[in-house]
Design a protein around this nucleic acid. Structure first.
Lengths: 151, 151
DNA sequence: TATTGACCTCAAGTATACTTGAGGTCATAT
DNA sequence: ATATGACCTCAAGTATACTTGAGGTCAATA
């Protein structure tokens, strides 16, 4: 099965807690990489496990795969070091902080607007958010994600 | 254009700050309703503006249209009263609070894990979240996450 | 009269994040 | 010898939230 230190797609899937199809998908998206053995089967370096773990953590933080890829692509190597993880997590923490502040502000605005009837007015802060919510485009807005359980 | 007190779809779109296509979409989803004039054009009650405003606020809070619909459907009338808004906003504030707590916990875990190298370990709290929810894009499956049984 | 502009319907497209399925290969186990 | 099990590819499906486009109606206006 696994020659030496490399892992098969099934082994990675099991250890990382994701489906094989997800690994195919991530590879196709350029988030992870693999090499092939004689029989054309994927073989992974153990470092891929940390990489996948990091991807999943970022997703929990509400970061899109596209942005995660951008961040990961900025690193020199596929194998992520602890120092690099330190940098990545600091960036993502900052994004989380922003998001938390946005949601907190929204909640507080809702609090102050309860029962005031201002929803009928054009200058209600809730109806006319100053915040960065650019609701354009298709799909859901990237950083205002609901709790959608995923695989 | 608008006979008496009713609004055309274009007027509603303009005043609510959404596209006409969005109004069609919301109607098709059962979130709003309209009647038709002699020429088969939609005519809206002014109350629809508040209703749309409320829908948008809920979306900013990260609530899906499906759940928003469920909440709105629980109300007796299409025209939402201030008292009903009070109830809705209280529910949504609670959801926001949950979401904020989840994100805060994640951020704090990231803080405590920075540089600890534990990403390589199977018992890292970040890699093995107790919380089953992943913040996720408008992507996939809404309520079906078995989530990562780590090896 | 002819041409806009606003509206209508219905189908398909877009983006994200995957999953599912069909059809085929490869190596081992019975 | 054949039957699994794990793997492969590529296409299409699923779900959310809309947008875009094609083709047609209707009423006011130049």
């Amino acid at each position: 099965m696994s020659e030496d230190k490399s892992l098969s797609v099934g082994e990675v899937a099991k250890r990382a807690g994701v489906n094989v199809s997800t690994l195919h998908f991530y590879e196709q998206k350029g988030l992870i990489e693999s090499r092939r053995n004689a029989g054309n089967q994927r073989r992974y370096d153990r470092g891929v496990l940390r990489r996948i773990a990091i991807i999943r953590i970022a997703q929990r933080a509400g970061i899109s795969l596209a942005l995660i890829k951008t961040h990961l692509d900025s690193l020199p190597k596929k194998r992520i070091t602890v120092e690099e993880w330190r940098v990545l997590s600091a960036e993502w923490q900052a994004m989380l902080t922003d998001r938390i502040q946005t949601l907190t502000a929204l909640r507080d605005e809702m609090e102050s607007c309860i029962g005031c009837g201002c929803l009928s007015l054009d200058d209600c802060p809730l109806r006319n958010p100053d915040d960065i919510y650019a609701a354009q485009g298709a799909g859901a807005q990237l950083l205002s994600l609901p709790e959608a359980p995923d695989s």
